[in-house]
Nucleic acid binder design. Structure first.
Length: 198
DNA sequence: TCGTAGATTTTCT
DNA sequence: GAAAATCTACGAC
């Protein structure tokens, strides 16, 4: 039904990778059911030269360590009460990553509702933000260092892409020039794209 | 509908 | 001890 994607897919510059990821599926196989979303929004973080990236200046810590490893690895990061999901890109030794910001639910709607606490009125509020998406999919810090090519959590080939737009990244605050880089990619007119526009 | 404050935990200084 | 790639509730209009 869903096939894991080829590992070579991740071996690409993150700007390209971020764009290519839009339209792909994220699949999470759990004992209680199958959860699938279609990625509609991503952001590229260009490691050493990007002040907004955790790995700016090749900063290598326990947290950023996985970004220096193989492309296709999962970089999970906790922010306040939320978990954010990233895909490691480029090549080994280069700390580039792509943040998955939003998705469109394909399968497992009821499970996602449950994961989110059954308090969500609109379906579009289920997965239209990085923290929400992780929670709906049941992704936690336990997946730090996992690979997006291995079950039970993996990326699968999606449908042909719709029109993609580029824009400014969200929530990176006062990081100088980095604020202006147009490294946010999202599907045009898709209602599941996060609404945090500046 | 819009803007603001508070939550809460890991990581780094 | 402060900051962080966010989300939600709540009050004003």
């Amino acid at each position: 039904m869903y096939e894991t994607i080829d590992p070579s897919f991740f071996n690409a510059p993150v700007i390209e990778l971020a764009r290519n990821l839009v339209g792909k599926y994220i699949v999470h196989e759990r004992a209680d059911g199958l959860l699938v979303v279609r990625i509609v929004e991503t952001e590229a973080y260009h490691g050493p030269e990007d002040r907004a990236a955790h790995s700016f200046g090749n900063r290598r810590t326990k947290r950023t360590e996985v970004m220096f490893g193989e492309p296709g690895a999962v970089y999970t990061y906790q922010m306040h009460t939320h978990v954010l999901m990233n895909v490691v890109g480029a090549k080994e030794g280069v700390p580039h990553a792509v943040l998955i910001r939003a998705g469109e639910p394909i399968e497992g709607l009821e499970l996602m509702q449950e994961n989110r606490g059954n308090h969500i009125k609109k379906v579009s509020d289920l997965t239209n933000g990085p923290g929400k998406l992780s929670k709906a999919l049941g992704v936690t810090m336990d997946y730090y260092g996992h690979h997006w090519t291995e079950k039970p959590l993996y990326i699968a080939e999606g449908l042909p892409q719709a029109e993609i737009e580029a824009g400014l990244r969200v929530g990176i605050g006062n990081t100088g020039e980095a604020v202006h880089y147009p490294w946010r990619f999202f599907e045009k007119d898709n209602p599941f794209v996060s609404k945090y526009r500046k």
